[in-house]
Simulated scan of single mutants.
Amino acid sequence: MLELSNVSKRYGDRLALDQVSFTVGDGRLTGFVGGNGAGKTTTMRIILGVLAADGGSVMLGGAPITAADRRRFGYMPEERGLYPKMKVLEQTVYLARLHGWTPAAAHRNALELLERLGLGERTNDTIESLSLGNQQRAQIAAALVHKPEVLVLDEPFSGLDPMAVETVQGVLADVAAAGSPVLFSSHQLDIVERLCDDLVIIAGGRIAAAGPGDALRTEHGSERWELLTAGDAGWLRRQPGIEVVEFDGGWAVFEAESDAARQATLAEAVTRGEVVSFTREHTTLAQIFKEVVR
Rank of each mutant, 00 (worst) to 15 (best):
S222A: 12
V244T: 12
E243Q: 13
P240G: 07
W235N: 06
A233I: 05
L228W: 05
A252Y: 10
R237K: 11
S222W: 06
P240D: 05
T218I: 02
L216I: 10
L216P: 03
W225H: 12
P212Y: 13
G250Q: 08
A256M: 11
T218A: 15
A264F: 02
T229P: 03
A230S: 14
T265M: 11
G231Y: 00
T229V: 14
P212L: 13
V253E: 13
A233L: 02
E243F: 00
W251Y: 15
L236D: 09
D214I: 11
T265A: 14
R262P: 06
E219R: 15
R237V: 09
F247R: 10
A210E: 12
L216Q: 11
E243P: 00
R217K: 15
G211D: 08
I242Y: 05
Q263V: 01
E243M: 04
S258N: 02
A256I: 09
G249F: 06
V245C: 05
E219Y: 04
T229E: 04
T229K: 04
H220W: 15
D232I: 00
A233N: 03
D214G: 10
D248V: 00
W235K: 02
R238N: 12
E255F: 01
P240K: 03
R217S: 08
G250P: 10
A260G: 11
T218C: 04
G221L: 12
W251T: 12
A233R: 03
A260Y: 04
E246H: 03
S222H: 06
E246I: 00
T265L: 10
G213T: 13
V253K: 05
V244W: 05
R237Q: 11
V244S: 09
V253A: 13
F247Y: 13
R217M: 11
G213I: 15
A264C: 01
T265S: 10
R238Q: 15
G250E: 07
G250N: 09
A230G: 12
Q239G: 02
H220T: 04
A260T: 15
G213S: 11
E255T: 13
D259W: 04
L228R: 14
W225C: 05
V244R: 06
L228D: 11
A215V: 15
A215M: 11
A230D: 13
T229S: 12
G213E: 08
L227A: 08
A215P: 03
A233P: 02
W251L: 13
D248L: 11
D214L: 14
T229L: 05
A210H: 14
G250T: 10
